[in-house]
Amino acid sequence: MPREDRRQENRRDERPRRITFRLFYDHGVGLGALLTAALDVGRLPADRPWEEQAVRDLLIGRRPSAAVSVMEGPRGCAYWCGLGASAPVVVRAWRYFLQFSLFPQETAVFLPVPTPGARRWIRAERAWRRRPEGADLAAREAIRYVQFWHQAHLSVWPD
């Protein structure tokens, strides 16, 4: 390997490691947070359009929750949940409780995922929450607003 390439390789090794604990949350029921977490761990592609079937498969069997849920994929694991209007209160409390844990504060990030305010998005979230068939509508709407999840994923950095 030429000397310059080796230097670049070494520089790459010096880069800080990936944040170990990533928790995505939204102000809704958690659908946006789930999609962003799936993008983050590689369950949904970052470099090509999403297929409705893949999103539907991801949503089936998962329920919206205020409790923290795990999402595992080829790039590790991330966490997601929907906090509704309690989001600012819960995130502040999380930081305090993190102080008691073995996770150092700097290795954990709580990432807000913006959700569309459109009525059809809210209807899709509600459908997903209420019945398993709601995953169809939720998958369609998730693809319509795909830029939201990519944008949120761009902001994975320590707060």
Binding site: V68, A93, L98, F103
Partner: peptide
């Protein structure tokens, strides 16, 4: 609901 979210963080593996 907020307590449910807070408590669920404590149950994350390795907390």
């Amino acid at each position: 609901r907020a307590l449910q979210s807070v408590a669920s963080l404590l149950t994350v593996p390795g907390f």
